[in-house]
């Protein structure tokens, strides 16, 4: 039997890795990759809480599915933005896109 803490620790680690990716990568697509990892970590938590909570109550899985939908929407719009930005500025490096500063 796997304790709940293992899952949560795993999810926390995955989340931190995703956070590092989102904070540190230069490429916008790579940033989105990090965000995906974070979302997955959240989903692992949700499903784990479902499993270790009241199994008959499907809230954990329901929310995980809604996170799927949100992730799909986020990726679709995010990548469309990336491609749009790439067409306009010919770059996907986040640091080079600082037109809005000051």
């Amino acid at each position: 039997m796997i304790p709940l803490s293992w899952y949560l620790t795993f999810a926390a680690a995955l989340f931190s890795i995703g956070l590092f990716g989102a904070l540190s990568r230069r490429n916008m697509v790579a940033i989105l990759l990090g965000v995906e990892l974070m979302l997955n970590a959240v989903n692992v938590n949700l499903v784990a809480f479902w499993r270790y909570g009241d199994v008959a109550q499907m809230a954990g899985q329901v929310f995980a599915i809604i996170v799927f939908a949100v992730a799909a929407a986020e990726v679709a719009v995010g990548l469309a933005l990336v491609i749009s930005v790439y067409r306009r500025h010919n770059t996907v490096i986040a640091e080079e896109l600082d037109l809005m500063k000051w």
Partner: peptide
């Protein structure tokens, strides 16, 4: 404080 606003979202995030 102006230099803080670099326009780099990752720095804001941090």
């Amino acid at each position: 404080l102006r230099p803080i606003q670099t326009g780099r979202i990752q720095q804001y995030f941090i």
